[in-house]
Design a protein around this nucleic acid. Structure first.
Lengths: 216, 216
DNA sequence: AAAATTAGTGAGTGACGACTCACTTAAACT
DNA sequence: AGTTTAAGTGAGTCGTCACTCACTAATTTT
């Protein structure tokens, strides 16, 4: 079960379900690259037009405002990918029963880190936007809270019951795991770090296996 | 040894060593608040002037460009605080010998989290800037690398020698600790989270005491 | 007190950036 | 083929914003 890459969604159904003309795709592509490289407000519509090899009018044919263009670029992440990711995530968590905390970390981590790797640019823009509008994070984390967290906590409880996980608050355990995974995510998104994901995950898993072992 | 709060530096020597007139301080204060709340490019010099209750000309009297104003706002962090922080940090690390990993985490963590707490706004702007210009991070982390890291690693080595720390790469140990501390930092900076720093640190220390215990 | 220096003002300017529109070109439909 | 609809153009508009400047008010210097 590999995560659906953003690129696919881009090709197909960006604007609802209607196909986009070639030039409009070029516009989106150019906007994505420029927003990621220079940030939203430091990018002019002229720059986008030039990079996309179209006139400025073409940029405004489909996307009525610059803001709509931003939305269009982020839409796949926010509207399609996130729920999809959430459900894929949940599916893995509910289908299988993990027999150790490291098993869980490696399985989930592999999946998510790969996703981040594949969508660096988009995530970078998103991060910049989030910094400006903190409310957006709320929506985003709400999604996590409602769909993923219960499934994760359920796994934690199972592991605790089998005496394979320390008896701390689920929040606390979750925080530690997310912290470390996110620190690698940051390195990838911000500095395009070339990391050996497999190595990282097995190290991380080893560490948690010790730090989160049940008390004898 | 409490960290020097930014506010003090602000009052005293922002522009070299020359005292700033009252209205210029108002300008800096307004710029700080607006940059933190809306971001640099979404803030107009008119807004700054209005909030500071001065004319727009006054804004440009001392600070020739908007960019200089940003620099002036961030200067205390970049030029004064960071080296100061680094040296204070180093001093603690070289003066004392820590007798456990949790001792080290609680001492250093207390100090640094308090600092973040006291300088949320500035750090938030800095984070936004960093996202735009990744090179700046390099300078910043260079500073860490040269002055702090050796001292920390030295402590690690000592602990290892006394069989109080697992024999992993120092980089790896450092990464785990920083990750978790930074995740709390993020919560404070981005969402102004009201956290019980003491509780957090003792929990974190407990976790690391287990995860980083030497192998029997 | 006169002169000189610094602080502060606010209307004004020039540039640039988001967006428009009258028009051309191409495709789709009947 | 002729008509309608959509795609694409690029010169032009309009507003905003960073920045200036001629001027006044207040301090400092001598």
């Amino acid at each position: 079960m590999t995560p659906t890459p953003l690129r696919d969604l881009f090709q197909n159904n960006l604007q609802g379900d209607q196909e986009l003309p070639a030039k409009q795709k070029q516009v989106l592509k150019a906007a994505l690259d420029l927003f990621a490289a220079q940030g939203f407000e430091n990018t002019t519509t002229k720059q986008i037009a030039t990079l996309a090899n179209v006139s400025e009018g073409t940029v405004y044919k489909r996307f009525k405002t610059k803001d709509q263009l931003l939305t269009a670029v982020l839409k796949p992440i926010i509207n399609d990918v996130t729920p999809q990711m959430a459900s894929e995530f949940k599916q893995v968590l509910t289908k299988r029963q993990f027999d150790s905390i490291s098993d869980l970390i490696i399985t989930i981590g592999q999946d998510r880190l790969q996703f981040v790797f594949d969508n660096q640019k988009e995530l970078r823009i998103l991060l910049g936007e989030i910094l400006k509008k903190t409310e957006r994070v709320k929506e985003f984390s709400q999604l996590l809270t409602t769909s993923i967290i219960p499934a994760v906590y359920n796994q934690f409880d199972q592991l605790k019951a089998h005496h394979k996980l320390v008896d701390w608050d689920n929040e606390r355990i979750f925080q530690y795991i997310v912290s470390i995974i996110l620190s690698y995510v940051t390195q990838i998104v911000m500095f395009s770090a070339q990391l050996d994901l497999t190595q990282i995950l097995s190290d991380t898993a080893e560490f948690f296996e010790r730090g989160l072992a049940p008390i004898e």
